[in-house]
């Protein structure tokens, strides 16, 4: 990625996500949530992941678990964006119990992927076609870093899909419903992890 790009992309990313949240907000708590989200993004960037890299991560997650809307023959089958995998990932990175090695792996992986992407396609990962993304990821998987990083991404993705909703993914147990999974009980209260959000 071109370094000059960074500040602008970062501002645009923040502005857009704040707008999205505030426009949809009808209560004070939603505004607070928006403010928290902003803080979260700032904190995440301090962890060394730029706004552009977040966009690349989102595109990778979408590719690994694509959303499949309902059709007349098929029910809705949720993908990464439906289960809020990105929001989940950001919360995970803020968890003080997460091993800094995991954070470093995430950063190194996305940086290496972007470099490979620009070198091979002269475009950014989110701008590639699905088959180009597949080619790039399969190539990346053959490297040691790529294999470890993709393993980590898939792990976090499945946590977002099938973890407890109080953790930030799997809204309303959407992943459980899709796969017919009966969760145990009692489940954690909805707000039990608000301090992290």
């Amino acid at each position: 990625m071109n370094n000059l790009d960074k500040p602008m992309k970062r501002r645009r990313f923040l502005a857009r996500s704040l707008q999205g949240l505030v426009l949809g907000a009808s209560s004070l708590s939603a505004l607070e949530a928006a403010a928290r989200d902003l803080q979260l993004q700032l904190a995440s960037e301090e962890m060394g992941i730029s706004a552009g890299q977040w966009e690349a991560l989102a595109a990778v997650l979408d590719h690994l678990l694509p959303s499949e809307p309902a059709t007349k023959d098929q029910p809705f089958r949720p993908g990464a964006r439906d289960v809020q995998a990105m929001g989940y990932l950001k919360l995970v990175l803020r968890d003080p119990k997460l091993d800094p090695e995991d954070t470093r792996l995430l950063q190194e992986g996305v940086t290496a992927l972007e470099e490979r992407c620009l070198k091979r396609f002269q475009r950014r990962f989110p701008d590639l076609s699905s088959s180009e993304q597949e080619t790039l990821l399969r190539d990346f998987e053959k490297t040691l870093l790529g294999e470890r990083w993709l393993g980590e991404m898939l792990d976090f993705l499945l946590e977002a899909l099938l973890g407890d909703p109080s953790r930030g993914g799997n809204p309303d147990g959407m992943g459980w419903k899709w796969l017919g999974i009966t969760p145990g009980f009692p489940l954690p209260p909805r707000n039990s992890r608000d301090s992290l959000k």
Binding site: L65, R77, L154
Partner: peptide, 28 residues
């Protein structure tokens, strides 16, 4: 019954990771 542990096992195959729609069909 732990679903995440079970799902993470579906991701591995001899040919490498399973992801995308093939992973979703395998989970189903």
């Amino acid at each position: 019954p732990a679903p995440i542990a079970r799902a993470t096992r579906q991701v591995e195959s001899r040919q490498g990771f399973v992801w995308g729609k093939p992973l979703k069909r395998q989970l189903e």
